[in-house]
């Protein structure tokens, strides 16, 4: 997702303003001049300043030239969101489905999106969750949820 410096700079200004405003509303510690508000306000001001400088293009000369991107259909960039979606799926589903099934689904989808053949993706989705479960549950004692399908160990 390539954004112009104006957009990212603008976002930083807004974020800085929000941080400074939010910080200024924090309750002070009685009898002290500086409290929890000082640091966020300082950062907020810094972010506003940086945002403005970025938006007007100062410091641009330091950046390395980007390689020109090959043109893709508009939805191609959305593929970048697949990993986030898979992690979200893990958060929502791992308690009910259990680790093995959730991880298998993640690996299968992830591998297919990256262009793997089913011949590779399917065995991977069966074997890797079991291996990871063995390593983390058995050896490292991480309490992974059992869910619908619990491995024999």
């Amino acid at each position: 997702m390539q954004l112009s410096d104006r957009v990212t700079g603008g976002v930083l200004v807004l974020l800085g303003a929000a941080a400074a405003w939010g910080g200024s509303r924090l309750p002070a510690v009685p009898g002290q001049e500086v409290g929890p508000a000082a640091f966020p306000m300082l950062i907020g001001c810094g972010l506003i300043l940086c945002g403005v400088l970025i938006a007007v293009g100062i410091g641009r000369s330091f950046e390395a030239e980007e390689a020109p991107e090959t043109p893709h259909p508009w939805w191609y960039g959305l593929r970048a969101l697949v990993p986030f979606a898979l992690l979200l799926f893990y958060v929502l589903a791992s308690e009910t489905l259990g680790f093995v099934l959730t991880a298998a689904a993640m690996i299968l989808v992830g591998a297919l999106v990256l262009g793997a053949r089913l011949r590779l993706a399917l065995p991977l989705a069966v074997l890797m969750p079991l291996l990871i479960h063995l390593a983390f549950y058995k050896l490292l004692r991480v309490p992974l949820p059992d869910g619908l399908l619990s491995p024999p160990w």
Partner: peptide, 19 residues
């Protein structure tokens, strides 16, 4: 193949941060 490594890394990220 990258298509095999990256999804596994993703699961490791989930498990590792959960841990």
């Amino acid at each position: 193949p990258r298509a095999a490594i990256m999804p596994v890394i993703l699961v490791m990220c989930a498990v590792g941060s959960f841990a």
